[in-house]
């Protein structure tokens, strides 16, 4: 059962990597990159339960935070061209 789940996750990874490589616009790539991170989280969790070490789920949570930071940094840079941009400046 778990092995089937792992295989499914890896198949999904293949599909997402294809999208990263082809993706006509940059945002397809960003979204696909984010999905790769999500799939890595799922893979980590499934393998943790498969190997009888469910405490890996804590590490999976950290992956989630990292994934969010990376994607947010890229998107913020695309929007503002600057990582330290203050959104309040736009409204003022």
């Amino acid at each position: 059962m778990f092995a089937a789940a792992v295989l499914a996750v890896i198949a999904a990874l293949v599909l997402v990597v294809v999208r990263v490589l082809k993706g006509p616009t940059l945002f397809d790539r960003v979204l696909a990159g984010n999905t790769v991170g999500t799939l890595a989280i799922i893979l980590l969790t499934v393998l943790g339960f498969l190997n009888g070490r469910p405490e890996w789920i804590d590490i999976a949570l950290t992956y989630g935070v990292l994934n969010l930071i990376g994607t947010l940094a890229i998107l913020k840079f695309v929007r503002h061209g600057d990582l330290a941009h203050d959104a309040g400046e736009d409204r003022a």
Binding site: V20, G33, I74, V78
Partner: peptide, 17 residues
Amino acid sequence: LFGVIVLAGVYSFLMAS
């Protein structure tokens, strides 16, 4: 180079897997 950065993140997560 934007795409390269995204790909580097993808690479990193794959390597972690």
